[in-house]
């Protein structure tokens, strides 16, 4: 499986000039206070990994990958692990940047705030990869893009309608009761949600023909 992870990371490395420029750009914007980069950088990892699906499709990689030892299983597993690895590395990078930023602006480091922001951004990106990957495996990258866009748009509309027409005061109160357990709940969700997503993707991929 290591070979499959390497393949995705080497493909990302091949585009490092563009990625490096974007990362530096966002970090500079973050330091200038123009942009909150805590969500942008981890989310970029997911988008970068999605670009590897395009390369795979364009180059017929999947037809070859399934003929490799344990190809179907490892190809899917590697995609998830490489993405999560990138997210974790980026989260550490964000942690270091937050500390540097606090020092450079002579402000007190608010560890609780930093950790919560990081946890939130990691959770958000893991949630989005867990949502997107099975759709990509099912529909292929081209159709999946449209589907994901429609899905996100649908969720936003649904949430808007929910907030407008449903009294969510009860839900808010219930969530407030769980205040002390949120880090644990988010951590558990960060493991459980991608695992369920991986199982769905694998099930789709095992049946797929190329």
């Amino acid at each position: 499986m290591l070979g499959f992870i390497k393949k995705d990371l080497l493909m990302i490395k091949s585009n490092f000039k563009i990625l490096g420029f974007l990362i530096v750009f966002y970090i500079v914007m973050g330091f200038m206070g123009q942009m909150d980069i805590s969500f942008i950088l981890p989310f970029m990892c997911v988008m970068i990994m999605i670009s590897t699906f395009s390369y795979d499709t364009f180059n017929n990689w999947d037809a070859y990958a399934v003929a490799l030892p344990n190809g179907r299983l490892n190809n899917v597993k590697a995609k998830y692990l490489a993405t999560i690895l990138l997210i974790v590395v980026t989260a550490f990078l964000m942690l270091i940047l937050s500390v540097i930023m606090a020092y450079s602006q002579n402000t007190v480091i608010n560890w609780e705030n930093i950790i919560f922001t990081l946890l939130g951004s990691v959770f958000g990106t893991i949630l989005s990869l867990s949502f997107m990957f099975p759709i990509i495996y099912k529909m292929g990258i081209e159709k999946a893009r449209i589907c994901i866009f429609a899905g996100v748009f649908g969720i936003i509309i649904l949430a808007g309608l929910l907030f407008k027409y449903v009294n969510l005061a009860g839900v808010g109160a219930m969530l407030a009761k769980l205040e002390n357990y949120w880090p644990m709940i988010i951590l558990a969700a960060c493991v459980l949600i991608p695992y369920i997503s991986y199982r769905i993707s694998l099930k789709i991929y095992l049946k797929k023909e190329f």
Binding site: S14, N15, Y55, N59, N60, W61, A63, Y64
Partner: peptide
């Protein structure tokens, strides 16, 4: 098994 398929399968950027 060693495999060669009819279409190119290695990602071009590698």
């Amino acid at each position: 098994i060693g495999v060669v398929l009819d279409e190119m399968f290695f990602p071009e950027i590698l």
